[in-house]
Design a protein around this nucleic acid. Structure first.
Lengths: 185, 185
DNA sequence: TGGCAAACGGAACGTTGCTCCGTTAACGAT
DNA sequence: ATCGTTAACGGAGCAACGTTCCGTTTGCCA
């Protein structure tokens, strides 16, 4: 059983981080989060050894929700291809509303492995199922891995919102359309 | 007419930067380039006020080559859709062989405007022509802007090479396939 | 109430981008 | 050839950042 102040600070930190992420993006300086939470830097790093751990903790719920929504779609009556499309939409919504999250997901910095690992471990299986269902229905090509697709969608969402001339959602839609078997002339 | 040592240093810097970019990626510390070139930091910043200016200078030739290749494809006998595909392949080759370049292109950091500006000013017109030709032939949808497409392709190339499970080329191919008019059931 | 381990806070370190200014040396004028 | 102007140089220095480290505080149980 952790000490009371530790538990309290953990909650305080999560709230502060969530608020700062919304205001300044996920790239916000650690100091800013510490100040907002009214704690020292050491406290942050004891609770969340790496920045990725903090991010994962903040967004865990939403990722889980996305996972479950995928399972629901899979069990639902929708056409497999439409189900895939709707689920991808959810994923895109999640990414574009978190400024800078997508950018971090594809960072080569090794300290973000945890982020990578947690998010993808949750989402890849669901995506794989959705892909498999659509492939089984013969709607899409069967040679695309869930991991690959998610990375691609994530990449397309990088910088979304910053640039009025760039609509990530639309490009993702086009990418998904590209999964369909091409019209055999 | 610039002074002789200035011209000499400019050349030296470009060579050093090119070498360092290959070895350590475009994110390499400025100090590293300065050391490699055997000059002080001030010298770099006088010749290239921002890092983006240096990058542009290093890759200017290749971007120009890509532009011209696009014009050649446009004038050539190839089917417009194939021409577009081949040109995009060239663009992708350019991006994936420059570690980290794609990542910088979509950076929200304002100091990279120059990079954005130069590269896109060159490539957008060519891409627009290729898109227009394919659209005129009725092969692809006509509502996608060149800028949007290039940004999308650039984003898909982020992190290419680092991750063996992610094949940027393939995803780009799928994206381009998504431009085709979908088989109307 | 006392003691001790858990938790805290923030100073300090290393790394980066970028600036600033004292020093050097190229080059046109004499 | 020499000399003065000034373009160009070099690198110390500053600010911002992530991360570590350790002296101090404080919750908790005996």
């Amino acid at each position: 059983m952790p000490r009371a102040d530790a538990r309290r600070n953990q909650k305080t930190l999560l709230d502060a981080a969530a608020a700062v992420f919304v205001e300044s993006g996920v790239d916000a300086p650690v100091r800013e989060i510490a100040t907002r939470a009214g704690v020292g830097m050491g406290t942050i790093y004891r609770h969340f050894p790496t920045r990725a751990d903090l991010i994962v903790a903040v967004y865990r719920h939403q990722v889980d929700a996305c996972t479950e929504a995928g399972q629901a779609l899979l069990a639902g009556p929708a056409d497999p291809y439409d189900a895939l499309g709707q689920w991808i939409d959810l994923f895109v919504d999640f990414l574009v509303t978190k400024h800078g999250l997508a950018a971090l997901m594809r960072s080569d910095n090794t300290s973000f492995e945890a982020l990578h690992t947690y998010f993808l471990d949750r989402l890849v299986p669901v995506c794989a199922d959705l892909l498999a269902a659509a492939a089984a229905a013969g709607t899409i090509r069967a040679d695309v891995a869930a991991y690959e697709l998610l990375r691609g969608v994530g990449n397309l969402c990088v910088g979304a919102g910053r640039d009025p001339g760039y609509d990530a959602r639309r490009l993702v839609t086009i990418l998904i359309a590209g999964l369909r078997h091409t019209p055999v002339a």
